[in-house]
Each structure stands twice: as structure tokens, then as C-alpha cells.
Design a protein around this nucleic acid. Sequence first.
DNA 1: CACTCAATAGTACGTGTCGTACTATACAGA
DNA 2: TCTGTATAGTACGACACGTACTATTGAGTG
Lengths: 181, 181
Amino acid sequence: MSPQRIRLTGTSYAVLSLLGLLGPATPYELKRALEQSVENFWPVPHTTFYAEPARLAAGGYLSVRQESGGRRRKRYELTEQGRRALREWADSPEVAPPQLREEGVLKIFAGGDPLPIMRARRDWHRAKLAELEGYLEGASADPSEEARGARASLQVGITYHRLLLESVERFLDSQAATGSS
Amino acid sequence: MSPQRIRLTGTSYAVLSLLGLLGPATPYELKRALEQSVENFWPVPHTTFYAEPARLAAGGYLSVRQESGGRRRKRYELTEQGRRALREWADSPEVAPPQLREEGVLKIFAGGDPLPIMRARRDWHRAKLAELEGYLEGASADPSEEARGARASLQVGITYHRLLLESVERFLDSQAATGSS
DNA sequence: CACTCAATAGTACGTGTCGTACTATACAGA
DNA sequence: TCTGTATAGTACGACACGTACTATTGAGTG
């Protein structure tokens, strides 16, 4: 029962801030909110995400209440300790360096043909950008103060993805210009 | 002794392609080559990276010869199986979607102040870009055919990072223009 | 009303990854 | 020969990941 020490990771803070935004929520509700926001600059597979609230509860950062209905879902809520940890982290200016995991570039490194790879990328980035812009429209419909961070991060996320797309397009143009074998 | 089945991950292919480039090498040599190339679009902590060649050898993708000197390092080399797996992977056009892990945006999402975070980012991206451009100069000094993939991936990597930097600068400019409280 | 199908809401488990901390060798200079 | 620093790793426990499976709900259909 006494809270264990657990390490707080990026995923932990993602959960904590979503709970800060939504109030008490079930893992599934959190996961849905995640998909429309944090997922895009902090990817988390769903199995990891489902497990995280339980970890945080074990560490004393969340409290749980189990529903009695058929699905007996667990509803999690920030504790004072959780709220404090979140605020401290958000207010400290240090950030870990960003990481880009790009299998496409890895393939090119290994000698793969850049053109089809980068074309696939271009299409993917276009779709992703459209998706994010949709989320931003949705988020802008809710002008509350609590959603300010969500909107700001979507802005930044969109800028990132827009420019990534641009970089891919630029690369493809330069290829078309030069060695279009 | 009979080769185990192992899963080949991005890290595996990073090792395989580095071995393809360098020929027989020790984990440390691989790690050094990694830092100047693949690391920048496929981050791998050094402990994971050291372990990977042994895994691949257990799977039959690499062969090992242990040196007899003081440090008794192990020198790894691609087997035919390894070479085949690498080529098949590099030639297939499917690529997993790129992932961006950006703690800064996560903090902004959580309500952190965007300005100091993005300023730190700008500086980081500037330094990284300079570093990559240095590597490209180094790689261009070696105009061999085998290094073609290395050069191409550095080009792409530089374009990515340049645009990421630009996106941060654009964001900071827009902040400076609007609400510079 | 029973049945089926899709969508929703998860869990289990083994392999792989990560970070912290520690260890060991080589070599240069005092 | 001692001491420091760069080089070259290993140990290990906690954490993350992916595949596959399970269970509940609700809507439509006969």
C-alpha cells in the first residue's frame, strides 16, 4: 500500500497533464484524448499507455476508484502529489533533446532507393498535417484557459510537421531537377 | 549453437548497414561510426548498441572472432544471411511512420512557458545542424560508392534538421511579434 | 428475442530497450 | 611509478513495445 518509488517518464507526464486537462478519467478516455494531441509529438503504444495510470497510482501520483458496472472500469484522478510533480516539471525550463526516429533515412543510409521512400513520406506527412489541422480546429472551438496548452502545442506540432513535409518536398524537387534516372 | 530466432529492429539494421559500410568491426568502432551518422535519425543508447551485435550473432546474421590481446575485443562481420537480410530490407519500399519525440512540446501542452523552451530548442538545433554539416564534409571527402547511402542520408538528415530549426525560429518570431509580455 | 458483427475497452506475456552505475584497459605526462 | 583521462566496455533492474488474445456493449437483422 505504501507508495513505491517509480521513475516519471515522458509518458507519465503525458498522462498527468491529460488528467489535469480532463479531470478524473478512465484510461480509455485518456487514450482518446491522447490520440488527438500528445501522441503526435510523444508517441506511446496503447498497451504502454493503459499500463501507465496503474504505475502512477502505485507511486501515489493518482488515486483510483473502480466502477461497479459491467466493465468495471477504473477512474483515475490526480492526487496532490501528482499535481505538484506535474507543475514542477512543466515549470522547469530544461528539456531533453528532441529525437527523430526515421526509418526511411535509415533505409537510405543502408543503400535503399531514396525516391520511393521519400514519396511515401510525402504522402504520409500530407495526411498527418491534414489530421492535425482538424484537431486544431476542434481545439479552437474550446477557448477555455485550461485548453491553452493544448492549442499551443498543436500549433507547434503543426509547424513541425508542415516543415517536415516541406523538407521532403524540397528533397524530391531537387532529385527531380538533378538525377531523374 | 543453432541460431535462435530473433526479431530484427531498426537498431539491428543500423548495425548491419554499418558493418556493410565498414567491413569487420568491433562494437566500439561501430558505435563511433554510429554517432556521426545513424544516431541522428535513429537514436540508440550505447548500452543497447553494444548488446546488439551479440544478439545478431546469436541469430546467425553476424560471425564473431575474439581478439587475443589485452582487451580481447570481439570483431563482428556480416554473414551471408546478414547481408541478405539487409539488402531485402533496404530494397523494400515500406517504411514505418517517422516518430518525433519532443519533450518541449509536451511541456507546452502541460502548461509550461513556451518561450524559454523554444529558445533552448533553437540553440540546440543550431548546434546540431553545425555538427551534421561537419559530418557531411567529412563524408564528402570519401567519394566511394559504398558511402553513397551515408552521404544521401546525411543530406536528408540535414534538410530535416534545418527545417526543424526554421520552424522553431518561425515560432519565436511570431511570439516576438504578438504577445511579448 | 436470439444471433451475429463491429466497435469499444481492455489484458497477458515475452522480447527488447533504457538508464544508472560500475569496471577495466591503454596511454600520456609528471 | 603514479595519476589522470580517454577509451572500451559490462551488469542489472525497471521500463517499453508488439503481437495476440479477451471481454463488454450496442446496433442491426431475421
